[in-house]
């Protein structure tokens, strides 16, 4: 191994089930024997990042995809919260509420990740979350993995926040849908960042469609500003891979899985040369800091 090998970071944006389209990227890295030094994920991207970070092979993640998409995970509604939304009698909505009950989702994460802590993962894995009480974006890198993965995707008010060590967390999507800056801060040389494009619905016909459209616009704007800043602060290559979906895919659309993988494969196919070239150019680059030190 050359001393000048780059540190490789992979960043996965939010994107619920669409984030599983990152699997072909990991398969490509595995084929090319490109090691990953850091994984950063948000929401759906956090689930996939955690799966790879915990030591699962891309093939295992591919096989487990169906498990993450069980419709029953999202079937238990919190009627009290729903009634509370309309101020109906017996209804209640507060900072701990959510339209869906989170137990089944948490049970699934416990089933898959056991009682592992993030710091025990073989690949350093960071999950983007938002602190509910302050609105600050935070990174979880230690503590119980299942709870951290849930927190990263707790899209309030659909899902309730989760309290970890006395702090309430919600989806990282609200503060950094594509946490590429974190990989820059952690000194990654080549950063591969996947953005799962979710088109704005041109004719929204329901409250949720309208609501989703606003979420998407806000997230896209925030991602652009944060990515520009990350590029400015970085010093080698950030490879942005847009995984283009032409329609919204619901969390439980298991029949969409083959198409999701296909879209991911196409997106990665177009970027393979760029990834290899970014690694090669870094390896060929003069070790600037070593030279500077010796000339002093």
């Amino acid at each position: 191994m050359s001393k000048n090998n780059p540190k490789i970071g992979v960043v996965l944006a939010s994107g619920n089930i669409k984030a599983f389209s990152a699997v072909p990227l990991f398969e490509f890295l595995e084929t090319e024997k490109i090691g990953i030094d850091l994984l950063v994920g948000c929401s759906g991207g956090g689930i996939v990042a955690a799966a790879i970070g915990s030591g699962m092979s891309p093939a295992q993640v591919r096989d487990k995809t169906d498990q993450f998409l069980d419709k029953r995970l999202f079937a238990k509604r919190d009627l009290r919260s729903l009634m509370g939304m309309y101020n109906l009698p017996f209804g209640r909505f507060n900072k701990k509420s959510g339209f869906l009950k989170p137990e089944r989702i948490l049970d699934l994460y416990h089933q898959i990740f056991g009682n592992k802590n993030l710091e025990d993962f073989p690949i350093k894995t960071l999950l983007q979350v938002t602190e509910y009480d302050t609105g600050w974006g935070k990174i979880l890198e230690s503590g119980p993995a299942a709870e951290a993965i849930y927190a990263s995707g707790a899209i309030f008010p659909i899902l309730p926040p989760i309290e970890i060590n006395g702090t309430s967390y919600i989806d990282g999507f609200f503060t950094s849908s594509l946490p590429v800056m974190e990989a820059v801060k952690r000194q990654m040389d080549v950063i591969i960042a996947l953005i799962f494009e979710d088109p704005i619905h041109p004719v929204p016909r329901s409250f949720l469609s309208c609501f989703n459209n606003i979420y998407k616009m806000q997230s896209a704007a925030l991602t652009r500003y944060q990515t520009a800043m990350a590029i400015d602060l970085h010093d080698h290559e950030i490879i942005l891979i847009k995984v283009p979906f032409t329609r919204t895919i619901k969390m439980w659309e298991t029949e969409a899985v083959p198409r999701i993988m296909e879209v991911g494969e196409e997106a990665v196919q177009n970027k393979k040369t760029e990834i290899l070239s970014a690694i090669e150019t870094f390896t060929k680059r003069q070790p600037v800091y070593a030279n500077t030190t010796s000339s002093l």
Partner: peptide, 12 residues
């Protein structure tokens, strides 16, 4: 254009 857009550079 897509690269500039993803990178947030179109607005700069």
């Amino acid at each position: 254009r897509e690269v500039f857009d993803l990178a947030g550079f179109l607005e700069l």
